[in-house]
């Protein structure tokens, strides 16, 4: 459908790196979670992170958001060194993290309010983002009145509303059913095409990682480190048709093979121990 001039196939991180992670390490007391993590994310690039459960993907993302302190190394977002949450970075949470006492409108407005936005700005922007995620008409609904998929749309709108240069996605579609998940993946791609940002997408679904990511980082081991970074050279913009491409299947199998080998090794290590 689209012209082959689509930029997604090029190594987008090569131009301006929005996020730079350097020799990052994190431990919880005696337990070392990951070590020596190094990667960049371009200003208009989606990097997916996959790994076996318990490998510290979510911990890594929380460190990048500044929610958790790291022990070694550095995280840079633009010129800012991340020690705590910084402006311009927004996170979408696995369990939505909506405030049950707030309506959709007020949930979406939350980030803007915390950033000190004026009332007129809030009243102008919030409906725009509610519409963007397809929740128009639900402004006054409370989270408990909505399905999981709608709740995560609201969570996405809340993150988008602060117009971040970096979006951090923590297994955002893991808690919704399979069909909804698929719909939301393509919605996310559509929204990203409209407003490209640097994005880190943590998932345990290989298919999701390959579909969304321009590169896929595979974490391995205990403590985990980057095992492989797979360039996903699929033509963009990605649509449902992308899932049918032979190249998609190839890449999926490649990431799958890498991960499964690791999973098996980890199992053997456990058995020996």
């Amino acid at each position: 459908m689209s012209a082959p001039s689509a930029p997604a196939a090029q190594p987008a991180h090569a131009d301006s790196a929005r996020i730079r992670v350097r020799s990052l390490g994190k431990r919880y007391g005696a337990l070392e979670v990951f070590r020596n993590i190094e990667f960049d994310v371009g200003a208009r690039e989606i990097v997916a992170i996959v790994g076996p459960s318990g490998c510290g993907k979510t911990t890594l993302l929380r460190c990048i958001d500044g929610l958790l302190p790291h022990d070694t190394g550095d995280i840079w977002v633009g010129d800012a060194r991340v020690e705590e949450p910084i402006a311009g970075v927004a996170m979408v949470f696995q369990h939505f993290g909506l405030f049950p006492w707030k309506t959709v409108f007020d949930n979406v407005a939350y980030g803007l309010r915390m950033a000190g936005a004026a009332r007129t700005e809030i009243e102008r922007k919030v409906p725009e983002f509610i519409k963007m995620v397809g929740l128009a008409g639900f402004e006054k609904a409370f989270p408990y009145q909505m399905s999981g998929g709608m709740q995560q749309r609201c969570g996405l709108a809340r993150a988008l509303a602060v117009e971040p240069s970096v979006l951090l996605m923590d297994e955002p579609f893991a808690a919704v059913d399979a069909q909804t998940r698929e719909i939301l993946q393509f919605e996310l791609l559509r929204i990203w095409q409209e407003r490209p940002t640097a994005m880190i997408f943590v998932t345990h679904s290989i298919e999701e990682a390959v579909l969304l990511g321009h590169r896929v980082i595979v974490l391995k081991g205990r403590p985990s480190s980057i095992h492989e970074i797979v360039e996903i050279d699929l033509p963009g913009p990605r649509t449902r048709a992308t899932l049918q491409l032979p190249r998609f299947a190839e890449l999926r199998e490649r990431v799958w093979g890498t991960l499964m080998r690791e999973a098996r090794e980890a199992e053997f290590q456990l058995e020996r121990a």
Partner: peptide
Amino acid sequence: GEYLEVARSFRAQRLRMLFEIVLPSSM
């Protein structure tokens, strides 16, 4: 904890977190 995490992620000040997150959650 997820409410507090969201508030921290959006850079809420401590007092606002107390009255806009902790208080309504404790209602």
